[in-house]
Design a protein around this nucleic acid. Sequence first.
DNA 1: TTAGGGTTAG
Length: 717
Amino acid sequence: MPSSALPRGAHAVLVTSGHLRHLDPHNQAPPLLLANSLISAFSRAALPRLALPLLRRLLAGAHPLRPDGFTFPPLFRAAPGPSSAAQLHACALRLGLLHPSVFASGSLVHAYLRFGRVAEAYRVFDEMPQRDVPAWNAMLSGLCRNARAGDAVALFGRMVVEGLAGDAVTLSSVMPMCALLGDRALALVMHVYAVKHGLGGELFVCNALIDVYGKLGMLEQARWVFDAMALRDLVTWNSIISAYEQGGKVAAAVELFHGMKECGVNPDVLTLVSLASAVAQCGDGRGAKSVHCYVMRRGWDAGDIIAGNAMVDMYAKLSEIEAAQRVLENVPARDVVSWNTLITGYMQNGLFNEAIKTYNHMQKHESLKPVQGMFVSVLPAYSNLDLYAKCGKLAEAMLLFELMSRRSTGTWNAIIAGLGVHGHGAKALDLFSQMQQEGIEPDHVTFVSLLAACSHAGLVDRGRDCFHSMQTVYGIVPIAKHYACMVDMFGRAGQLDEALEFIQGMPIKPDSAVWGALLGACRIHGNVEMGKLASQNLYELDPENVGYYVLMSNMYAKMGKWDGVDTVRSLVRRQNLQKTPGWSSMEVKGSVSVFYSGTQAEPHPQHEEIQRELQDLLAKMKSLGYVPDYSFVLQDVEQDEKEQILSNHSERLAIAFGIINTPPRTPLHVYKNLRVCGDCHNATKYISKITDREIIVRDSNRFHHFKDGHCSCGDFW
DNA sequence: TTAGGGTTAG
């Protein structure tokens, strides 16, 4: 019976029981060759348990054989872990079989890198007397797999310097690094390299190019590569569809999906993952259903965790939370990502209680530890965004905080700051005591939050205590920021003389934040004389900042001191000061739009609509009694132009954009880089009433929560 | 019936 007719298992039994030589008396093949073939076959079948004993049998069996250069590469490939790779490495070295064989060394490099042993791989690679292209490729691809993008690109450079031309494998290994590094120029260079080396038509190279261009947002280039391809496979289609989907061109992504089917290419899980994200992005509920059906028909939702999670994410993004939940319940091997997706979905839809319930459920029933940082990352985000958005939801944020198992100083700082900006000074102080009880060491950031909390809540004495104990108990030397908080605290409470005295007693030079706090307080309380003192210091410390001139001018105007207004204006004119460009951003359906004050060289795509909305609002505001406050305009222009300038402030553009692009009564969240001007502050009160929306503006100073014609900040302008 | 390297992901 010829040995080739034996089933594989029989080979294994024969070989491992020492009957190799007797396997087949008619077979002329030398026993070593036969053994090598078997080792190779087993390792290709990923059966290290069968492959590795063969080596032992060869070396120490009844009839020992000396392995040759062909024996080790498949063994390296089959190594189940780094320690067995190291043992094989030592064995090959002992037998003198490693470095003479480029093949063996190259595959050992690959083996080490599979287990993240970069240093060992480098050592073997550097010791190789000569290296061929596959050896370079093993090193390059391994570095890429270990996310060592910089090293990989550097090594590729070394290869180029040594005059060795890479091949298609080289390029498709290194190309993804451009995306990881976010390096568009490098992507173009690699593309040129590919064309120069005649690899521009290689399937894998093109696929990698499309993927990289897509990830870097270079859709035109991705499309160009795609269109030029003579042969496309599943990966090609997946890459181009994903590129369009990630780039927000969802209609094109869906169209390509149909094109793919017309070409007779069968979609796989990854195709549907992109498609799910595309239909979710364009709010296509019906599309979502058909994507889900497609996935179910193939059983992917039950069998493939990525597909299942993608379905959860899709429904969550469409605010179909119940559907998301149902899908999740049917994902058999739910992991932390699955839960995180659902919880994030709840959060995005404002269902904080559901999020917390789900979180509890996950911990109780799935014995899954939340990824370290899952909530640590969510919480600060919420203290800055959602948390502030819904003052009433502060309780839920606190609950989330309670749920967190490991709380660091940073987490505590976040929740204390969150409480502080909403005026819950006393609660912030309570939490601080709790923090002390738990033995968490506060840092200087904690005290900035605490002092700001005291300031916002008008707790002057408590603030003074904090400032004191910070130094005596914790040995933290106050920095200018702490002093500025103190000045702000005295100032808001109307204790302007205290504030000034405090500044004069400072052991360090007061900076612009300190004087700025005083100026702000002077404006609130209408103290022009002290305001002058503060602004003079500010003009010296921060002469470029027009904001202080605006405040001063506004103050003079409020008091009817028009000559003061003129003086400030001429100061601004004489120095030819340019206002820091103000911008505001707003997030609608997960994408952020940024608006700049005034007319733009490149107007927003919805410019006309936004202007119409603003005009419409202005008319309604005026009918309710709104009077524009031109003291916030320093430009010397006609009155109607001033009105135009005011209503084109970036925060108003953002608000108008939000009104146009969200359903009625959806709360609007605006972030502004500068302080909201007094006129916009007033206007936003009216807008909140007219549109019956909550409008939350986070400016460089604080949160403003507008609702039903009022603002939570309580400042009067 | 003898050998090493490659592209897409929630």
